[in-house]
Design a protein around this nucleic acid. Structure first.
Lengths: 157, 157
DNA sequence: CTGCAAGTTCAAGTGCACTTCAGGTCAAGC
DNA sequence: GCTTGACCTGAAGTGCACTTGAACTTGCAG
């Protein structure tokens, strides 16, 4: 174990962040995090990368894609270590997003009550199965909830 | 257009269900729906398959995987056309599911309020980025919301 | 100085839910 | 009978977010 320095090894990062080493490499390749290298080529992470990873995980839990997360991270100030206020600023937008997601689900639930009552599940009338209502409003074809929760709403494949 | 019979062509099904023909073929291959064939090998669907498709779409909107949907459809009575009551029975379980999803999101939102207040996003303390709280409870590694909403909670790939 | 856990790269694989493509066949209207 | 749009199959491709594997190198403890 590395001790005296403030740079963290991959192993330490996986232990502290819960992300697999392969995920860290992937995020680096995608430009979400960065790392310096030893002379031998091994990665060394600055401590503040942990906060970035916490942000990534939180954003994922809210349903953002890595693309969106990258974009959000890009709005952090360059040159200096982000302050708590910086983090708060870029995550503030999530609130509205979550509200929308919650509302969508509540609508689904209430529609479901109706459908269970009548057993209809009609293509034309049912609020939860109608492609023109919940699904097709957000794209074409089969739109699953996860995509419904994304800003980026293209159809699959 | 086919008219006098009660069997529907693929084209009619895509028009009425909103699913692409390729999706219908896929569902058939996966055993979610069935179709008879003309002597020439073309698919002909019975009208009640539309209801099955409505069910599939509704279940997708709630966040079920095709596997789960297939399992649910398997609980329909064999031999006779399902009644509204049959449909109601198998979709009743969705209510609890939706409630849970809503609750999870509300918890996320309220946690977010706290995090925005303090700007913390700490791996150890933050309620929305802590892997031991929202994410790791449901699996290992990076668990996104979509998976959080699935019953089947294995990690990716 | 050596041993070996921990690190490296790059390519390919995974799972889901489909879509797209190529190359051919069917069926309904004229 | 012919045309033409709808349909067929099987294989391969897509997008995301990673993981896995193979073959190799680093770096710290003893």
């Amino acid at each position: 174990m590395l001790t005296g320095t403030d740079l963290l090894t991959v192993g330490q990062m996986t232990a502290r962040s819960g992300f697999a080493a392969s995920a860290l490499r992937y995020y680096e390749a995608e430009g979400l995090i960065s790392a310096s290298r030893t002379t031998g080529g091994q990665r060394r992470y600055e401590r503040h990368i942990l906060r970035r990873l916490a942000f990534i995980r939180a954003a994922q839990n809210i349903g953002l894609s890595l693309e969106e997360i990258k974009e959000a991270l890009g709005r952090l100030p360059e040159g200096r270590t982000p302050t708590p206020a910086d983090w708060a600023k870029i995550s503030r937008a999530w609130r509205g997003r979550l509200e929308q997601e919650i509302e969508a689900l509540v609508r689904l639930r209430d529609g479901l009550e109706q459908c269970i009552g009548c057993g209809c599940l009609s293509m034309k009338r049912c609020r939860i199965s109608n492609p023109d209502d919940v699904a097709a409003r957000y794209g074409s074809g089969a739109v699953t909830l996860p995509e419904l929760l994304r800003e980026d709403r293209r159809a699959h494949g």
